[in-house]
Nucleic acid binder design. Sequence first.
DNA 1: ATTGATATTGATAATAGTTATCATTCTTTG
DNA 2: CAAAGAATGATAACTATTATCAATATCAAT
Lengths: 133, 133
Amino acid sequence: MVRLTVQRQAILDLINRSNQHWDAEELARCLGENGEQLGIATVYRGLAALENAGLIQSIQLADKKRYERADKGHHDHLVCIKCGDIEEFCDNKIESRQQQVAQDRSFQMTGHQLLIFGVCQSCSNDSRESETP
Amino acid sequence: MVRLTVQRQAILDLINRSNQHWDAEELARCLGENGEQLGIATVYRGLAALENAGLIQSIQLADKKRYERADKGHHDHLVCIKCGDIEEFCDNKIESRQQQVAQDRSFQMTGHQLLIFGVCQSCSNDSRESETP
DNA sequence: ATTGATATTGATAATAGTTATCATTCTTTG
DNA sequence: CAAAGAATGATAACTATTATCAATATCAAT
Ligand SMILES: [Mn+2]
Ligand SMILES: [Mn+2]
Ligand SMILES: [Zn+2]
Ligand SMILES: [Zn+2]
């Protein structure tokens, strides 16, 4: 299993204390600001190790990977194309239909990722305000 | 609307004649081998322009974007983690549940992407053969 | 505790996919 | 035809991530 070095523990603690979806750079910066400065390569390796161990989870966005706490369990995401905000949801009907789809094709599913893109509530309020009525 | 230059027409034709999920590099190489050599930047720009116009569609994988015919309409994908093979499916129950999830949160959905990862049938056959029984 | 094997770190080079720049070459429009 | 507007292609630049490698740290016996 993973060796929980001070560096990895720092990464894990920060992620577990928060509710965000962190990218490697943000994480390194935040740790640095809190006196826990670690090399960017160590952050990438630490994140990979922690994810392998199931201690954190991630989502792959178009440009970068983002990590979050694993104790929330599996869920999927709504991504706002205006502000980048990420909301979460889990729909059991969707989850079970996916199993079915895979089974129907003799495809041994190991995982999945569902991203819903669009405009979040707060962003659509913002644009409504600035309309010419 | 898009200007259908000879370069873009070549890209579009190749995609429309095939059933694959092309990345920019593959496309450029294949065109080059068929006497339609175009700069890689032109390929990237052409793909973006054609997609904007709705003439092709794409999926964003972890490492790169892959393009395919648009006339098949929307569908989602099963990606084999062994051989990279990409299968397609469309499940109306999943599609409608997504609408519901978005609506419930006042999230204005503009699109989505569902990737199911796992081992395809042919790859799981392969590994069964090489087992010690 | 000492030693030797193994794993981790951090600085930095390298890689991969993609976008930006810019001079040149089409197209379109008046 | 001439000016304005796009598109092209070579290549530089950029971003996220991985590879390299020497220096440390940790582990597992002796
Ligand atoms: Mn999440
Ligand atoms: Mn497809
Ligand atoms: Zn938003
Ligand atoms: Zn396969």
